[in-house]
């Protein structure tokens, strides 16, 4: 089995105005894997990624986050980034009033990248090459997402975290993003992917976790999750056979709760 890159152990975390969001979460991401993290709105997926990156001051409250064995608790986000973990945040986090070129240039602030690194990334997203002098805020949603991923790649991370990269994008663009993720993984990149689009996520992922109300309720290899009846009904929108009385329950029952 490959080495463990990211290890999250019994993490409890929250915000100042909402003390407990994660209630003891443990997960692990191994080198070369694509791991999907599924869960409905407000389950705490973003909170988990933010906790890993050190973006919530003084969190996690309890538990440990380790990257290649090194404790991340209490480190600054920029230091964690320099260790080799990159996050493409929810909402993309581009700088709307900087040009596309400047957005890319920033990724080289802490650690310079070479011309050929840049070319490799731009070859992956050729639109960005044409848009260099345009303000990033004027890019389309799909182009902004590509910019966000491109910037993260220029950091040359060993682990890439993505928070809902498909949010708000047209199906064709979503497919494009996912095919990029798949080829990145084939080239050796390890990914932790938070997604609402469970179907796509479970297609690229090797392993998956389901987070509900701050707890992991299910985990397993992606193909097993795809077959799981609860996952099918809640995240894949598969219609179950009608109940004996002939109508569907208005709310799906979660067998794991």
């Amino acid at each position: 089995m490959s080495a463990e890159l990211l290890s999250v152990r019994n993490v409890e975390a929250g915000y100042r105005r909402r003390l407990v969001v994660l209630r003891g979460v443990s997960l692990s991401v191994r080198e070369g894997q694509v791991v999907a993290l599924l869960g409905s709105n407000g389950a705490g997926k973003t909170t988990l990624l933010r906790t890993v990156m050190g973006l919530i001051p003084d969190q996690p409250e309890k538990g440990e986050v380790r990257f290649r064995g090194a404790l991340l608790n209490g480190r600054d986000p920029d230091a964690i980034t320099r260790l080799g973990v990159a996050l493409v945040p929810e909402g993309r986090g581009i700088f709307p009033e900087l040009t596309v070129a400047e957005n890319l240039q920033l990724a080289g602030y802490a650690r310079r990248y070479t011309r050929s690194d840049l070319d490799a990334v731009l070859d992956r997203f050729p639109v960005l090459r044409e848009r260099g002098r345009q303000l990033a805020g004027t890019l389309s949603g799909g182009e902004q997402q590509m910019l966000a991923v491109a910037r993260a790649l220029l950091l040359r991370p060993s682990l890439l975290l993505l928070d809902e990269p498909s949010l708000g994008l047209a199906p064709r663009v979503v497919a494009e993003i996912f095919s990029t993720l798949r080829s990145l993984n084939q080239e050796g990149m390890t990914l932790l992917l938070v997604e609402q689009n469970a179907r796509m996520a479970l297609e690229v992922a090797h392993y998956g976790y389901v987070l509900e109300a701050g707890r992991l309720v299910l985990e397993g290899p992606a193909d097993r999750l795809r077959e799981d009846p609860n996952v099918q009904e809640l995240y894949l929108g598969v219609q179950r056979e009608a109940s004996p009385k002939g109508f569907r329950r208005w709310r799906p029952k979660r067998r794991w709760a």
């Binding site: 990156m53 973006l55 700088f95 400047e102 802490a110």
Partner: peptide
């Protein structure tokens, strides 16, 4: 580069940190 980092931090400090900008 420092000026660029200053503009980035002014616009979105979290995103800047995520790019390794202190």
């Amino acid at each position: 580069p420092l000026g660029l980092a200053m503009r980035a931090v002014a616009q979105n400090p979290v995103a800047a940190q995520l790019l390794g900008v202190p």
